[in-house]
Design a binder for these strands. Structure first.
Lengths: 177, 177
DNA sequence: CGATATTTGATATGGTCCATAACAATTATC
DNA sequence: GATAATTGTTATGGACCATATCAAATATCG
């Protein structure tokens, strides 16, 4: 597995296909070469899954470039909007983020005035999370960008019914594997 | 998005569902609470994709515990077996691994006598990669483990035809998104 | 041929994300 | 009221990813 993000950044130059290539000079085999055979790799769920995930995140970042939102940040905003009044531990753990790592993420959102921590009066240890007005506005714009530029691309690529089937299968894997 | 691996390590203890919970004590709303609403998050391709990917890798590592092979290492062995005589740059770039990062990965495999670097006689800059006998044997066992414990679980979960459809869609995303 | 550019493997380095331990403040438990 | 547990936080280390740079070897081209 392991698929870096650089992978195919247009590349070309080393893959000119027609380089200076003498015809079988020495003993060492120097066949037509060029493209490698992926073989069983293309049947490995993990390999394909990871490659797809990287591509999707890459595309997501491009779509959100104007709002400067990462997938993680977007998911936090979405979850806080849907579940107002929850504290950091609840939001973080739902997203699978460990509390220590959630601090810097929140610091960022708060410094940009997208999200606010409010000391709970019930339990003065915890911080209630809420979206600021700016946060709500940004999230609204973000949703539109995702819908029109990101998720729409999926439908275009797979078709509506396939898209739903894909999401369902992935959810099943995420929850029951 | 962002889904850590710790996420649900059996957890339970804070989610006892029936803790000491007085009935609406003060002004601050303290409803039944408990489970958060994922909302639109569960419809986000990136979110579900990442969660599924983490689960699959997690399961892969468990299945390969006896052989101590990571997804990345397994993919290298598979690709070297299928494409003997290729150098580091070719193998690495096919997997989307940058050459600098490929060095340590190979060092590991070579130190375990699974893979060997051979100076090419054609081009003495490059290292031809080959599997050692032990590498071939380990890879054979690894394939069996993956087939019987890992990929088999997919069929069990989704069914054969769905599994194929899933791989096809993921490949499409990986290649055309 | 010989000077220059390119390629290959490697090192060093920094960034990001993930995971654990530990702490102060607060709250729960007994 | 003493002890345990929880919350947010800091510090820290590991894994992975990306860039710049290097020496050795090769390719390119005048």
């Amino acid at each position: 597995m392991t698929v870096s993000k650089t992978a195919e950044k247009s590349s070309e130059k080393a893959s000119d296909a027609t380089k200076g290539r003498k015809d079988a000079p020495e003993g060492q085999s120097q066949g037509p070469a060029e493209a490698l055979q992926l073989g069983e790799l293309s049947e490995q769920l993990g390999y394909v899954l990871k490659r797809a995930q990287l591509k999707v995140f890459e595309n997501f970042l491009r779509c959100m470039a104007s709002l400067q939102l990462t997938p993680a940040q977007f998911s936090v905003l979405l979850l806080v909007e849907k579940n107002p009044g929850r504290n950091q531990t609840e939001i973080a753990s739902t997203l699978g983020i460990l509390r220590p790592n959630f601090v810097a993420l929140l610091d960022n959102l708060e410094s940009r005035d997208l999200c606010a921590r409010i000391r709970s009066t019930n339990d003065r240890r915890s911080h209630i999370l809420v979206l600021t007005d700016k946060g709500k506005a940004v999230l609204t714009r973000a949703k539109k960008l995702v819908a029109t530029k990101h998720e729409s691309r999926l439908k275009e690529l797979l078709g509506q019914s396939n898209r739903e089937a894909l999401l369902e299968m992935l959810s099943k894997i995420a929850n029951e594997f």
